[in-house]
Simulated scan of single mutants.
Amino acid sequence: MVQPIHDRVVIQPEKAEDKTAAGIIIPDTAKEKPQKGKVIASGPGKKDDPNTVKPGDRVLYGKYAGTELQFEGEDYLIMRESDILAIID
């Protein structure tokens, strides 16, 4: 697995919706980028500011936050903890 350093976090984005609530199938070209995901790994944080998210947390992040990464056939994002907007219960 990829182990982030400093205040970086590795997130596995949730899959984009395939259908609307009414059952209309959404083509790949019209799908929205997901803004929710699961924390896979978290760095220790900055010297005086430890990271508050931990592996397993579901989070909400900005639409264009992070850097996309593919590792062992899976899609991930690496971003700063400050790019995370909220932890979802």
Rank of each mutant, 00 (worst) to 15 (best):
M1F: 10
Q3H: 15
Q3M: 15
Q3E: 15
P4S: 11
P4W: 11
I5E: 14
I5K: 14
H6A: 15
H6T: 14
H6N: 14
R8K: 15
R8M: 15
V9A: 09
V10S: 09
I11R: 04
I11N: 01
Q12F: 03
P13S: 06
P13C: 06
P13F: 01
E14D: 11
E14A: 08
K15C: 01
A16H: 05
D18R: 09
D18E: 12
D18Q: 11
T20C: 01
A21Q: 04
A21P: 00
A22M: 10
A22S: 12
A22V: 04
G23A: 00
G23S: 01
G23R: 01
G23L: 02
I25K: 14
I26M: 08
P27K: 04
D28T: 04
D28V: 06
K31A: 06
K31Y: 02
K31T: 04
E32D: 11
K33V: 05
K33C: 04
P34E: 03
P34G: 00
Q35T: 14
K36I: 08
K36N: 08
K36G: 00
G37K: 03
K38I: 14
I40H: 02
A41P: 09
A41Y: 08
G43F: 12
P44S: 11
P44F: 08
G45N: 07
G45M: 08
G45D: 10
G45W: 05
K46H: 12
K47L: 12
D48I: 04
P50H: 06
P50D: 08
P50S: 05
N51Q: 08
V53F: 06
K54L: 06
P55S: 10
D57K: 02
D57A: 02
D57R: 02
R58M: 10
V59A: 03
L60W: 09
L60S: 11
L60N: 07
Y61P: 00
Y61A: 03
G62R: 15
K63M: 08
K63V: 09
Y64D: 14
Y64C: 01
A65R: 03
A65G: 05
G66D: 04
E68C: 03
E68V: 06
L69D: 03
L69V: 14
L69P: 02
L69S: 05
Q70F: 09
F71R: 14
E72N: 13
E72L: 13
E74L: 02
E74C: 01
Y76C: 00
Y76Q: 01
Y76K: 02
L77P: 01
L77N: 05
I78D: 04
I78Q: 12
I78M: 13
I78L: 13
I78A: 06
M79T: 05
M79P: 05
R80S: 15
E81A: 09
S82Q: 13
S82A: 15
S82M: 12
D83W: 08
D83K: 11
L85W: 07
L85G: 05
A86L: 10
A86Y: 11
A86H: 09
I87D: 00
D89T: 06
